[in-house]
């Protein structure tokens, strides 16, 4: 028997309520029930990092979290990073440093780096590489991604 639950969750500052099967993971819930397709699904078993979101301010793999578990909690997805049409400095740095190739891993890279740069505003290159070690880029564009992260850290420090 398929068991359903009503899930109330705040995503990118906006309150949502939707019914979902209890077995549905958070990534499918965000994409299929809330229409927030910015969160990508790669491996669906916690290896690739593409589906990374922030749950109560901490990154999590949304394929390894059930939607029912976030009832009453706050989520931030890739859609919540920019301020309207104004890109976040991290997004600008990715554009300027060739941090995207096919773009599939990008949502997970950005959400991961939002937390990393919040907790450590001046990371070393090694810290960035360890920080994104749970995010796979199959274009292997890591050089550009690391350069973008370090450039973004510089831009964000200048703003704060």
């Amino acid at each position: 028997m398929t068991e359903m639950r009503k899930i109330s969750v705040k995503v990118n500052g906006k309150a949502y309520e939707a019914e979902a099967e209890v077995r549905m993971h958070l990534a499918d819930f965000l994409r299929q029930k809330l229409g927030l397709t910015g969160t990508h699904l790669g491996c669906e078993h916690g290896v690739c990092g593409a589906c990374t979101i922030l749950l109560d301010g901490r990154t999590a793999r949304s394929c390894l979290t059930l939607a029912v578990q976030v009832d009453g909690h706050e989520i931030m997805t890739i859609e919540g990073i920019a301020d309207g049409d104004t890109l976040h400095p991290l997004q600008e740095a990715f554009r300027d440093n060739h941090g995207l190739q096919c773009g599939f891993c990008t949502p997970g890279m950005l959400t991961t780096l939002i937390e990393l740069l919040r907790d450590n505003p001046d990371p070393t290159e090694e810290e960035v590489r360890i920080g994104i070690s749970g995010n796979l880029c199959r274009c292997t564009g890591y050089q550009g991604i690391v350069a973008a992260a370090l450039d973004a850290a510089k831009r964000m420090r200048a703003l704060s």
Partner: peptide
Amino acid sequence: MKPPVFSYHDP
């Protein structure tokens, strides 16, 4: 790659 059907309990 989707979980099977189960009943969910959150004590």
